[in-house]
Design a protein around this nucleic acid. Structure first.
Lengths: 210, 210
DNA sequence: CGTCAAATGTACTGATTGGTACAGTTAAAG
DNA sequence: CTTTAACTGTACCAATCAGTACATTTGACG
């Protein structure tokens, strides 16, 4: 019997996710969600105590699913660190700027003040992702493939460079779908800057200029 | 008589701005705004046709004011481009991450889907700012102070690097006030990366590695 | 088949919202 | 003073919302 209720719960979460994505938090009323999932409003409230709780579950669940999808094949050190980072960057941007994830992320940002949602998404999403990549970068630094520096800082610089050409339009919801070709070009330009600063010291002095 | 109505209009805008900042768009009801500004709701609707219009005016006005404040003393070429960029970066971050501007920006992002608000704020805020800085960078490139590259791309990379350590926590509303010391340190770290990639070619080959 | 918890549909509450109506008041301009 | 316009206060409307009550139906398990 647990299986039946679990599938029902998942069905509610799925439909609610779509409703929130299309209509926003305030725009998606519980009646609207009920209409999509079918059944009665009492059932909704049987699975989730309040709209806030339902939204919270939807956001953390989607965050988790998307995180797994994005970092599934994060090969660490395949010899060429630049190649590794390029593959990761392209996969990362493809994931982050798919229409569904764009919508989810924007929703997360807009409603981040609600309860402790922001805190939790930061820890389980952003921080977790950055720590994972920072570990690869730390290893590359230890092997002399990258100049020695703070791995978390390098990771934040990498992420920022990857998003540099997209984030402003994304935040103001002016960005549609981003083509694979665009993502490859953007990643290449970002990595050129990253490698100039964090590439092996043998290449050049570079970042610690002052 | 135009002066009276103009000051009244400004008073409404000011109080509405504070209300939106503190309570968000949905949270700040027209009755709440009326209570803050005093007078009657009819007067409110005499100056602004709808809540949407009032919000739109508040956002564009604050965007304009903040833009002016941030770019007021953007000295172009004072010899050392790195020094120039550092001063700009510190001023820019101080402005962008003051509590008031943080709140306004977050509000803009959250409600950017409303009407054509996002489009307008992007053009009058982001694009205008980037074009201004890109022009300085273009001149520096022409003078050989920076490696030749696309000035708008360099500007976007610069902005991204400056915000790299703050933006995630800002977006999820986990960032309080940022101290002057932190801003200086963040700017220095961002500029080190930027100069490694975009510094004069005499320093090194750098960015166009592939 | 009988049991019993889970699911359903409908109807409802109480509160809040953006926006309007209107009659009365202020106050500046001629 | 008179005109004319804006301003005020209060009361109100229609719609919408999250959440509840309840009587009824379903459907899986023993």
């Amino acid at each position: 019997m647990k299986t039946k209720t679990e599938t029902k719960r998942q069905a509610i979460l799925d439909e609610a996710a779509r409703a929130f994505r299309e209509l926003g938090y305030e725009g998606a009323s519980m009646s609207e969600i009920r209409a999509r999932v079918g059944g009665s409003k009492a059932t909704l409230y049987n699975y989730f105590a309040s709209k806030d709780e339902l939204f919270f579950e939807v956001m953390t669940a989607s965050c988790e699913a998307e995180f797994q999808a994005a970092h599934a094949s994060m090969d660490p050190t395949t010899g060429d660190i630049e190649q590794s980072l390029r593959h990761f960057g392209e996969r990362f941007l493809s994931f982050l700027y798919s229409p569904e994830v764009q919508a989810n992320r924007h929703l997360s940002i807009a409603e981040s003040g609600r309860t402790k949602l922001g805190q939790l998404l930061y820890e389980r999403g952003v921080l977790r992702s950055q720590r994972l990549v920072a570990e690869s970068i730390r290893e590359a630094m230890a092997q002399g493939k990258l100049r020695t520096a703070d791995p978390m800082l390098a990771t934040q610089h990498l992420y920022a460079l990857l998003e540099a050409e997209l984030i402003d339009r994304f935040l103001l919801q002016l960005l549609g779908e981003v083509s694979k070709a665009e993502i490859e070009a953007i990643t290449a330009r970002a990595l050129a800057v990253f490698m100039a600063a964090y590439g092996p010291a043998s290449d050049q002095a570079a970042a610690k200029s002052r």
